[in-house]
Amino acid sequence: MKKSYGLTFKKASIELAQCPLCRGRAVTQGVFYELPCDHCNASGWVAAATGEALALDELVTQLSMVLHAARRQIEQLRRPQAGGPEAGYQGSNRLGAGGTNYTGD
């Protein structure tokens, strides 16, 4: 484990896994109707390393971090990536005079 001193300025990301009891549904089947899952605090997610439920404030933070990472990945996949010969003409390669785009034409 890495030694660290003082305060940490970044929130540590905890890997999440689906609750094994409710299988990520946040509810379990009762006799007549569905009940909130007690194992995962009715969230459907537990810590992957320990299998224990997270505190609600920690769970909200971790789910927000996962959501932001997923949105960044979706935006990255939506942006078209130029390929082939036109790839050199897209954007700035900063090789021209004053840091402008240089195409070699």
Results as ranks from 00 to 15, higher is better:
58 E>S: 13
65 M>R: 11
79 R>W: 00
64 S>A: 14
41 N>R: 14
66 V>K: 07
36 P>N: 09
72 R>P: 01
79 R>E: 05
95 L>W: 11
85 P>V: 06
41 N>K: 12
48 A>R: 14
52 E>P: 10
55 A>M: 09
56 L>V: 04
50 T>A: 10
92 S>T: 11
38 D>G: 15
49 A>L: 12
70 A>P: 01
40 C>F: 11
59 L>E: 15
72 R>M: 07
57 D>K: 04
87 A>C: 05
39 H>A: 09
39 H>D: 02
72 R>D: 15
79 R>T: 07
37 C>E: 04
80 P>T: 00
76 Q>N: 11
78 R>G: 01
84 G>A: 08
42 A>C: 10
90 Q>N: 04
94 R>Y: 09
60 V>Y: 12
49 A>P: 11
45 W>D: 00
54 L>F: 11
69 A>M: 11
81 Q>D: 05
78 R>Q: 14
62 Q>S: 06
59 L>S: 08
52 E>R: 14
54 L>T: 05
60 V>S: 09
93 N>D: 13
62 Q>C: 08
63 L>C: 13
49 A>G: 09
76 Q>H: 14
45 W>T: 00
56 L>Y: 02
79 R>I: 00
46 V>E: 08
75 E>N: 13
39 H>K: 11
78 R>H: 12
57 D>V: 05
71 R>G: 02
65 M>H: 05
66 V>R: 15
87 A>Q: 15
93 N>R: 08
91 G>P: 13
79 R>L: 01
54 L>S: 15
84 G>S: 10
54 L>K: 13
86 E>I: 11
51 G>P: 15
73 Q>C: 02
58 E>V: 10
64 S>E: 14
41 N>A: 07
94 R>N: 13
80 P>W: 01
90 Q>W: 15
77 L>K: 14
91 G>R: 04
75 E>L: 03
85 P>E: 08
54 L>P: 10
36 P>H: 10
68 H>G: 05
60 V>M: 02
81 Q>K: 13
58 E>M: 08
37 C>G: 06
72 R>W: 00
90 Q>D: 13
64 S>D: 14
56 L>I: 06
61 T>Y: 06
89 Y>I: 02
82 A>R: 03
44 G>E: 06
66 V>T: 11
46 V>W: 10
79 R>C: 00
77 L>R: 08
83 G>R: 10
53 A>I: 00
44 G>A: 08
66 V>Y: 09
89 Y>A: 05
79 R>Q: 04
38 D>K: 14
38 D>T: 10
41 N>Y: 12
42 A>H: 10
57 D>W: 01
81 Q>M: 04
84 G>L: 03
89 Y>H: 12
40 C>Q: 07
58 E>H: 07
69 A>F: 01
82 A>F: 12
50 T>Q: 06
87 A>H: 07
46 V>D: 02
51 G>W: 01
65 M>L: 15
56 L>T: 08
74 I>Y: 04
81 Q>A: 11
47 A>T: 10
77 L>Y: 04
71 R>V: 02
88 G>C: 07
74 I>K: 07
65 M>I: 08
79 R>P: 00
69 A>Q: 11
70 A>M: 12
49 A>M: 02
75 E>Q: 06
44 G>H: 05
41 N>G: 03
54 L>D: 06
79 R>F: 00
55 A>S: 10
85 P>K: 01
91 G>L: 08
91 G>W: 04
51 G>N: 03
40 C>H: 13
86 E>R: 11
45 W>S: 05
67 L>Q: 14
66 V>E: 15
86 E>Y: 12
52 E>V: 01
71 R>E: 06
71 R>H: 12
